[in-house]
């Protein structure tokens, strides 16, 4: 019997049942979906920015108070104003901008290369089980090894060139990115794979439409950690390898300031390195992560505000 015949058995009754069901369901839906009111963007951003800014101001005031009250030796404990002065002169002399630009360029480029290597490697490991068994522990191990340990070897291999710096950055960042992707894929609920199969996805479609998007939070966590490791490894490499054709980065500046026993300049550089790390995190990763998690309902209540 064709389906239409069943459908037309009693169209009037069916239609009545339909509208009634529609009303009932609409009523239940309204009860069950609470109004998810999200606070306005401006208020949220203010809520996120104000507390840390206040903390920084308080810390600076305390520091200044200490220098005013205790009068420590300025060469051993420069006050915030000394550091600010050092920052100003380093900036106007052009040394600081050059160092920031050099390091940032290397950090970003090194990170991008690490992404380009770590992502396909992660995909390969996630897909090929015996390869994951073989290489997985090694890559996890590499994540534990501080990448500075590679500096001496890299200098012997590549000399005092940019290649040394990039090598160290890659050894720091690639394992994190690869591991993030592999664990992201591992954590994809088996239910979603089954659904993909049931919906008739080919192997490629299953990977691109289901598994990779599902693995995105893990991958993003890996990228974040990869960036942190890139930046750290870069600084370590720049501090150790000075001279040759290696340009003047923040690490080099830190090392130079130490040799000049200029503590204010050292602190200036440290604060700059820290600030760049925070700014990249806040501007590049945090918004992407927030959006990703919010879309999936994984960002329940933001820690900000009541």
């Amino acid at each position: 019997m064709p389906p239409e015949v069943i459908a037309q058995r009693d169209p009037e009754l069916d239609a009545r049942g339909r509208t009634d069901l529609r009303t009932l369901e609409a009523g239940l839906d309204a009860l069950q979906t609470g109004d998810v009111s999200s606070r306005s963007g401006v208020r949220r951003i203010l809520g996120g920015v104000v507390p840390p800014v206040i903390l920084v101001i308080v810390l600076l005031l305390a520091w200044q108070l200490y220098t005013v009250v205790a009068h420590p030796r300025p060469d051993l404990a420069p006050g915030p104003l000394d550091v600010l002065g050092s920052f100003g002169s380093a900036w106007t002399s052009g040394r600081l901008p050059v160092a920031v630009l050099t390091s940032l360029q290397r950090g970003v480029l090194g990170f991008l290369i690490a992404v380009a290597i770590g992502t396909p490697l992660g995909l390969l490991l996630a897909e090929v089980r015996w390869l994951r068994r073989a290489l997985g522990p090694l890559i996890s191990g590499l994540q534990v090894l501080p990448s500075v340990a590679w500096v001496p070897a890299a200098i012997l291999w590549f000399g005092l060139t940019d290649a040394t710096v990039y090598f160290v950055v890659l050894m720091g960042a690639v394992p994190s990115i690869t591991n993030g992707l592999v664990s992201g894929v591992e954590q994809v609920p088996p239910q979603l794979r089954r659904v993909g199969t049931v919906l008739g996805a080919s192997r490629l479609q299953l990977a691109t439409r289901v598994i990779l998007p599902a693995a995105l939070p893990g991958y993003l966590a890996g990228l974040k950690q990869g960036w942190a490791f890139s930046w750290r490894s870069l600084m370590a490499a720049e501090i150790i390898t000075v001279g040759g054709t290696i340009g003047f980065g923040l690490g080099s500046m830190l090392q130079q300031s130490r040799e000049l026993a200029d503590l204010a300049a050292v602190l200036t550089t440290i604060i700059t390195i820290l600030a760049i790390g925070i700014i990249v995190e806040l501007l590049a990763f945090a918004p992407v992560e927030r959006r990703l998690l919010r879309r999936r309902g994984l960002l329940v209540a933001t820690a900000v505000g009541r």
Binding site: P189, Q191, L192, L199, R209
Partner: peptide, 23 residues
């Protein structure tokens, strides 16, 4: 299935569209 097994990053419409696309 017992769990809806919807893809959490897609809207309701896009979840249905995915089935249409794969079809």
């Amino acid at each position: 299935f017992q769990e809806s097994a919807l893809l959490p990053w897609l809207t309701a419409r896009r979840n249905v569209e995915l089935a249409l696309e794969l079809r």
